[in-house]
Design a protein around this nucleic acid. Structure first.
Lengths: 333, 333
DNA sequence: CGAGGTGATTTGAACGATCAAATTTTAACG
DNA sequence: CGTTAAAATTTGATCGTTCAAATCACCTCG
């Protein structure tokens, strides 16, 4: 049945008639051990079903080969999927690079700072990944103090993009592509439905629309996120009928769905609308959307932390403080 | 800035003029140490910014206070948002019980078995949580052999519900509630739109509908999951018009959305439809749905593994092989 | 044949904490 | 005040591995 005591490196050494260290070498640096010895040891390992104790190794090496990621609260809205896909992709890429992923949740900033301390001092993780960082983020500050490597999913808006290592989605490129698509396919009156100013992400997405529109004029609507909000604004816009509208680029799928519902209700079911995030909801309804590709972000983050090839996290404060922008992809439906 | 070497228990002991063990006691069993000593040590801890090294503790205690959870890829089974919410809730509850959560991804069964071995032997985790287990699941088998505690989100269908510890959503209770709701609100012709037989989860959900319908007759449609599939079947049903339809209970939100789109197209936009999973898509469109409450599942799983109060995972094979059903909640829109 | 070098293997210490047992201090009581 | 029990604290060993240095085996060459 179950082996009560799992085999240790010592057991293998005895069985194979060699020393601990030789067994260790067979496992970690097979190149430096003589072929005959290596085979002997491998047989013993197989025999005893030995697997190295990761905890002991970590203690000795003072490295955990683990990264910590915060899970943000499930907000219930349409978004949030992006982050989940990110975590998932990160886990897959991390596995293939020999890293483990430890997730944690924290309700308050104080909790999170405490948790970060524990992870850092306890030697639990070699690096931490933050999401949604702002300029002068206290978490980033704390991590820097502790000398713990970290990177963020999201730009530290306003920091001249170089406050700490980050990877983000190029929202402007996404809305620009969406706008150009509608300009080519629907007509030149492409409106923008976004959020109130000063939200970083929102401004970025609006920027892409503006860039693509150039001198053309079209309404720019702003409201809080949400299906009902989007529906209301677009209903008013269409009922007013002052300006022609050939298409609408939206800052989120929630807004896009609202816009779509309003358009259908107003008798314009084929009004071209593009959302942002490419959520299941947009797919189900058949609305075009900008897909964020959080998988790329995950790759990028690991690259910042580990270099493009390595399997180890760089020690000390990250030398590279630059950021990396991932270009999203327009999904046309 | 950064303290190059983090303080160890030895440093604290020296600073406070006591022995290692006393410091350890202050941290872990404050009750047994004299008040004056305790204060002295706490001052030293504060002074040096000491935090215990979790890795060393784990090695000595031969316990990791960590549970492993597999992240499924996005498709099939307990998919998407439900699983993400589950992982999130699990993380929160685990934190409050002093556990960490390690996530892993595996593309193939062989990969997963290998990973499980590593986690188990390496002492990385004290327990593992599986999702989507079947009768005689090789992963469960392996874990039992290894003597590693585990529990599953999902029933081992067909095992008489007692193959290993599990927690699951009571799908039948959900569809029953949905059906009763429609019977009371829409009329007595409540159809069911589900999946082909023998899918465990699907049969369960159909069972709830049957139970609520009793002797009443109504169409039962089955197809693969997906918006387009649902739309097609419902369009055909409504076009045929042989039987009156007052409402439709669906086995998934994807099917429900398809049904809704077909109903709108067929000129019956107010046909009552209930989905399953309460996804953001259903919420956005305004379709009622059965909400799975994965948070409760997370609680239940921890309870199976740790008992209702403890902060430690039970050693050895779980004594309790029973399962636990969580009743879902109908969200009416 | 012995010095020197290279490659393979072994030995002892260390990583930082907790366990178990031993020791010291304090309290209680006749 | 002395004896004894209980409480508080310390000591030595240990968890399983890898690092760094030491040793051993073997080969080459003058």
């Amino acid at each position: 049945m179950a082996e009560q005591r799992v085999a240790t490196i010592e057991d293998v050494a005895r069985e194979a008639g060699v020393s601990r260290q030789t067994v260790s070498n067979v496992v970690n640096r097979p190149g430096i051990v003589k072929e005959a010895t290596r085979r002997k040891v491998l047989v013993a390992i197989e025999e005893l079903g030995y697997a190295p104790n990761a905890v002991a190794r970590r203690l000795r090496q003072r490295r955990s080969s683990t990264i910590g990621v915060k899970l943000d609260a499930y907000s219930g809205g349409i978004s949030g999927v992006v982050l989940d896909r990110f975590v998932h992709a990160l886990t897959e890429h991390a596995s293939s690079r020999g890293l483990r992923v430890l997730v944690y949740a924290a309700r308050t900033l104080a909790d999170e700072l405490g948790y970060i301390n524990g992870l850092a001092d306890g030697g639990e993780v070699d690096a931490i990944i933050l999401t949604g960082t702002a300029l002068g983020d206290p978490r980033a500050e704390r991590l820097r103090e502790r000398g713990m490597p970290f990177a963020a999913f999201g730009r530290p808006w306003g920091a001249g993009d170089a406050d700490h290592p980050w990877v983000d989605i190029d929202g402007a490129a996404g809305t620009r592509a969406a706008t150009e698509h509608l300009l080519a396919r629907a007509g030149e009156h492409v409106a923008f439905l976004g959020w109130p100013p000063d939200s970083g992400t929102g401004d970025d997405r609006e920027r892409g629309w503006r860039a693509a529109m150039g001198d053309r004029a079209a309404p720019r609507l702003a409201t809080l996120d949400g299906v009902n909000e989007g529906r209301r604004l677009v209903r008013e816009l269409l009922e007013r009928g002052e300006t022609p509208v050939d298409g609408i680029v939206c800052a989120s799928d929630a807004l896009a769905i609202g816009a779509h519902l309003a358009a259908v209700r107003a008798g314009r079911p084929d009004l071209q609308i593009v959302g942002f995030d490419n959520t299941a909801a947009a797919e189900a309804i058949g609305i075009s959307s900008v897909e964020q590709l959080p998988e790329r972000v995950a790759e990028g983050i690991l690259e910042l932390l580990m270099g493009s090839e390595g399997t180890e996290i760089r020690r000390g404060p990250a030398p590279q403080t630059a950021g990396l922008l991932v270009e999203p992809r327009l999904i046309v439906r």
